[in-house]
Design a protein around this nucleic acid. Structure first.
Lengths: 223, 223
DNA sequence: CGAATAGTTGAGTAGTCTCAAAACAGGTGG
DNA sequence: CCACCTGTTTTGAGACTACTCAACTATTCG
């Protein structure tokens, strides 16, 4: 269930001719709940998520769990950076990602200006998301956290002003990410539904019914 | 009290001969509670803190405050990145910092390998601090948050295993950073003192009396 | 010294957590 | 097709923590 992911030849060769091609990154898929072991990716430490979600998961001494950072479609992730982190990188959804060696990545940044700009701005964006996430965690109530999470999902999926948002993560993972217990999160969903802020028929896809109100809630007005 | 900081010629000229020298960054000082307006630093957006602390401060609709990120001695800060952030960069202590233009900074990175490595690793470290901070905020109790904060202070001040740590920030700012009310934080201090985990005579300097216990508390063991 | 700011203490309340159990969804085998 | 199993989500009741508001003490600075 939580197997460590190791890169072996069968993975490598599936998409290459045996040697790493300069401009063809290696695409890999990982099952849900796979732990990405940084050590195992020593040679291909740069990962660009193309589908799914990776979370940096931490477990406190008594079992409390947190997901501190989420890497979604389009996000760059330098596995070397997280070797010394207190958490583990876990696929919270089935993931497909491109893997790059350090040199390969640098090369591609040099050769492809757009790629370079994309990656740089992605890194900057990730810092902003982290800061915003701290704000969400620090002083917001459960419903406010959920409202914020819905907008974060919409924004990071680049859905513009769409009123239908796919949350994709499991409730338990959303709870870990927003610093709540799954039960509390469930009650927050129920409250938003009851007050006609959102509507949903399944766990994944939610419809925003009253965007201004939801926005204000997320921003902490009328607590 | 919360004046916006603008760079004017008097600031510029104090350390240069009128033109920005290629290799002499401009050192500036800012009073406590100054707000750094990104717009005003258009031409010198890169800031390296040499003393004091800058916090990214957010205010929710009903007045709740949070400091999501702290920039301490040695930290690099790209003011452009935070133009679109929901918070304001505020000096939570009197600050001195070097200011660089984008070109100047790049140049220095090219010319000075050590500088380049320092800045890059600083950026990576900041991401780790942000992730750890999310863990601290998400599921820890007040005393656990405080214990974590003490260790974060020690680590970021590179005090090694020193048992005396200067917290430097005001209680209210620590509270904003750790997602607590000042009253709750004060009670957390009292509890740590009462249980002989720490001791202190003034608000700033605290002594760790029982490091293993404090460490375990910070890590969420024996909640 | 008095005013202003910063930090602490106390009592009551609101909100989240805990634990337990029930409802629901998806897949498997009879 | 249905009973069954497993994993996920929801609901309920009670405990506990952090918040609120208010008053009080300590410190800083004219």
């Amino acid at each position: 269930m939580t197997d460590l992911a190791y890169i072996d030849d069968s993975n490598f060769l599936s998409h290459s001719t045996g040697h790493i091609q300069a401009m063809t990154p290696i695409s890999n898929t990982f099952d849900q709940d796979t732990i990405l072991d940084g050590q195992a990716f020593r040679d291909l430490p740069l990962l660009v998520v193309t589908k799914g979600a990776i979370g940096l998961k931490h477990t406190l001494g008594d079992g409390r769990q947190t997901i501190s950072v989420l890497f979604l479609e389009g996000d760059v992730l330098d596995l070397r950076q997280y070797l010394s982190a207190s958490g583990k990188l876990a696929c919270v959804l089935p993931v497909t990602a491109f893997l790059y060696s350090s040199e390969h990545f640098k090369q591609k940044e040099q050769d492809n200006t757009k790629f370079h700009i994309d990656q740089t701005s992605n890194r900057a964006r990730q810092q902003l998301y982290a800061a915003q996430h701290c704000v969400d965690l620090a002083r917001k109530s459960a419903v406010e956290k959920l409202a914020s999470f819905i907008f974060e999902c919409r924004k990071r999926q680049q859905l513009g002003r769409h009123l239908t948002v796919s949350l994709r993560l499991r409730r338990a993972d959303i709870a870990d990410y927003m610093g709540l217990r799954a039960e509390t999160l469930s009650r927050a969903f129920a409250k938003l539904r009851k007050h006609q802020f959102i509507e949903y028929n399944n766990a994944d896809e939610i419809h925003i019914l009253n965007e201004p109100a939801l926005r204000q809630l997320a921003n902490g007005k009328f607590a």
